[in-house]
């Protein structure tokens, strides 16, 4: 563990991975169970977010249900061109995540577009910009995961 977190902070982080109720005062019940006022809950969440322990507070959308499309893509980028290619790839607003990985396919990114047809267009643009082949790994099926980080 790299952070010194209070037990209360840990409980709060764990509880915030559940679903808050859609009510006017969504923090009240959570606060009662932790012995905090709703304002104290809010202040603590803000501090955790400002400290970077929580990345975001709010609704989590299923972007595909919104009509968006996603596709995992991979490229084999020569090491001596890596930074130049990276600049060109990341310049596309549709590149939502991009990771370097230790494999001959060493650049893995996710394209996120509002329309399904745009995935192929952006992939072709990236191939054109970089002169490198983009392999597409669209999801065929998503398996339910019950993963939680235990803070």
């Amino acid at each position: 563990m790299t952070e010194q977190l209070s037990d209360l902070d840990r409980q709060l982080i764990n509880r915030l991975q559940d679903d808050l109720p859609l009510v006017s005062h969504p923090f009240t019940a959570l606060g009662e169970s932790l012995g905090l006022s709703e304002q104290e809950v809010v202040d603590r969440i803000r501090r955790l977010r400002d400290d970077g322990l929580l990345t975001r507070f709010g609704p989590f959308f299923d972007a595909e249900a919104l009509g968006g499309a996603f596709c995992l893509c991979a490229m084999t980028v020569p090491e001596d061109r890596f930074e130049a290619v990276l600049t060109k790839v990341n310049a596309h607003a549709e590149v939502a995540h991009n990771y370097q990985r230790d494999h001959s396919l060493n650049m893995w990114f996710v394209l996120a577009t509002e329309n399904r047809g745009d995935i192929m267009r952006v992939a072709k643009d990236i191939e054109h910009d970089t002169g490198l082949e983009v392999l597409l790994f669209p999801k065929k099926r998503e398996f339910f995961v019950g993963f939680r980080v235990n803070a």
Binding site: T2, D19, L53, F57, G58, P59, A65
Partner: peptide
């Protein structure tokens, strides 16, 4: 928002922990 949730567009309301900062590096 309740309707968006019933339609699967909103998955949940909450927070996402930062794996890295919680030691999952």
């Amino acid at each position: 928002l309740a309707s968006l949730k019933a339609r699967g567009i909103v998955r949940r309301i909450g927070a996402a922990p930062n794996h890295y900062r919680l030691g999952m590096t």
